Amino acid sequence: MTAPIDPRARIGHVHLRVADLDRALGFYCGVLGFALMQRYGTQAAFVSAGGYHHHIGLNTWDSAGGAPAPPGSTGLYHVAILYPTRAALADALSRLDAAGIPLTGASDHGVSEALYLDDPDRNGVELYRDRPESDWPRDEAGGLQMVTRRLDLAALRAEATLR
């Protein structure tokens, strides 16, 4: 048996194949609010939150003009973007509402609250915020007990600061 991974390891970025770079940038920068850090013509771009070199890479190297993966195929299920607060997640929902981007789901998992949607290339996207660990649901033995309940979108919308 091998030793476990160092607990400080993190996912540094995700790189997505897209059919149209400008369309993808319109979504990730124009709707979600990521900043464009660098662009390589019509082939690739790197976007970030907070000035990091990149959280999301977008490229058309093998996918320019391509179709999304068909249902039933393997690949990315979704990329999850962690928001620091409930108000920040509410602001993300306001951005989606303003852009007319529909949700594919919205769940309260006890440990987190999550919005689910597709980007323009039908890559799954989860926007979520974690609850403080002290608020996580536990069973009688103290074990973590994740749940899936409907997220109250009206209550979340009421917390938005972007109007």
Rank of each mutant, 00 (worst) to 15 (best):
D6Q: 08
D6G: 01
D6T: 03
R8Y: 01
R8P: 00
I11M: 14
V14N: 11
H15K: 09
A19H: 13
R23N: 06
A24M: 06
F27H: 06
C29Q: 09
C29T: 11
Y40K: 05
G41E: 12
Q43P: 00
F46L: 09
V47H: 00
S48D: 00
G51Q: 07
H54N: 04
I56P: 01
I56S: 03
I56D: 02
I56C: 03
L58W: 10
N59M: 08
T60W: 08
S63W: 08
G65K: 09
P70G: 12
P70W: 04
P71S: 12
S73E: 13
G75P: 07
G75R: 11
I81D: 04
L82V: 14
L82E: 15
L82N: 13
Y83A: 12
Y83I: 00
T85K: 00
P102Q: 11
P102A: 15
T104L: 11
G110Q: 07
S112D: 08
A114T: 13
A114N: 00
L115I: 05
L115C: 00
D118I: 00
E126P: 03
D130P: 05
P132F: 08
S134V: 14
S134W: 03
D135A: 15
P137V: 12
G143H: 15
Q145N: 14
M146P: 15
R149C: 06
R149V: 06
R149W: 07
R150Q: 15
L151S: 02
L151W: 00
D152Y: 03
R157D: 05
R157C: 08
A158F: 10
E159M: 14
